[in-house]
Amino acid sequence: MSLQIFILGVLNKAEHHPYDVKKMILDNTDNVVNITDGNLYYNFDVLLKKGHIEKAQVVQTDNRPEKTTYRITDSGKKALEDEIYTSFKNAKTVLSLYASIAFIDLVDKSRLAFFVEEAMEKLHKRIDMVESKLAAKKIPDGLTKKQLSYGRFIATHTLDTLHTELKAYEALLDILRSE
């Protein structure tokens, strides 16, 4: 749904052609998002069928294909808001929130902060669990010291990743609380 969030969010500000939306997404995400034309037009079609967007204008110029611009509907505005909340509520990583973060001005930031705090609590629990496993000195039955060293490497990397994710959530929470 993140591509649909981007599309709805961009159309919430003004009418656009799908190619313009693609260019805005790529420009505003430093080309981190991989968008194919097929995927883009498919998502426009899905949103059109759901009634979340509608054709605003079809322009035909000499020797060029038709160019259709779209606008968001009232149900699209509601869907955008709902999807932003849902993405924060179900977030697995901060990366999964990129599309929603771009449009947080459209929703209640205190509600988003609540979801971020919940995600941080879960991260703290995972960090505690990994740290306790790393602290264990005993070699589990059936493992060699070599296998244990591999496992410790993986656990250490996991712990580093979790701490990085927690730091990103903390920064996001600061943004949500400061506005």
Rank of each mutant, 00 (worst) to 15 (best):
M1G: 01
S2D: 06
S2A: 05
L3P: 15
L3I: 15
I5C: 06
L8Q: 07
V10D: 07
V10Q: 14
N12P: 00
K13F: 00
K13L: 07
A14S: 12
E15H: 15
H16V: 02
P18T: 03
V21P: 03
K22H: 01
M24E: 03
M24C: 06
L26F: 03
L26W: 04
L26V: 04
L26R: 15
L26G: 06
N28R: 14
N28D: 12
T29W: 09
D30K: 10
N31V: 09
V32K: 11
I35K: 05
D37P: 00
D37T: 01
L40Y: 06
L40H: 04
Y41K: 09
Y41C: 03
D45G: 10
L47E: 06
L48A: 05
K50H: 06
G51C: 05
H52A: 02
H52Y: 15
I53F: 02
E54H: 03
A56F: 07
V58K: 13
V59I: 14
V59C: 04
T61H: 03
T61Y: 01
T61R: 11
D62S: 14
R64H: 04
E66I: 04
T68M: 13
T69V: 04
Y70V: 10
R71D: 13
I72T: 06
D74R: 10
D74I: 11
D74Y: 01
A79R: 13
L80G: 11
L80F: 04
L80I: 05
E81L: 04
E81M: 05
D82K: 15
E83C: 01
E83S: 13
I84M: 10
Y85R: 01
T86S: 15
K89D: 15
N90S: 11
N90V: 03
A91R: 09
A91K: 04
V94K: 00
L95Y: 14
S96Q: 02
A99Y: 01
A99Q: 02
I101L: 10
I101A: 06
F103Y: 11
F103L: 02
F103N: 12
I104S: 09
L106F: 09
L106H: 10
D108S: 08
K109L: 12
R111T: 07
R111D: 13
L112S: 07
E118K: 01
E118V: 02
A119S: 14
M120G: 06
L123R: 13
H124G: 02
H124Q: 07
H124C: 09
K125L: 14
I127S: 03
M129R: 06
M129I: 01
M129S: 09
V130H: 02
S132C: 10
L134K: 07
L134M: 12
L134C: 08
A135W: 12
A136V: 13
I139F: 05
I139K: 08
T144S: 12
K145H: 06
L148H: 00
S149Q: 15
Y150P: 00
G151D: 07
F153I: 05
I154H: 03
I154R: 05
T156Q: 04
T156D: 08
H157Y: 10
D160R: 15
H163M: 09
L166M: 12
K167S: 08
K167D: 06
A168S: 02
E170W: 01
A171G: 05
A171V: 02
R177D: 07
E179N: 14
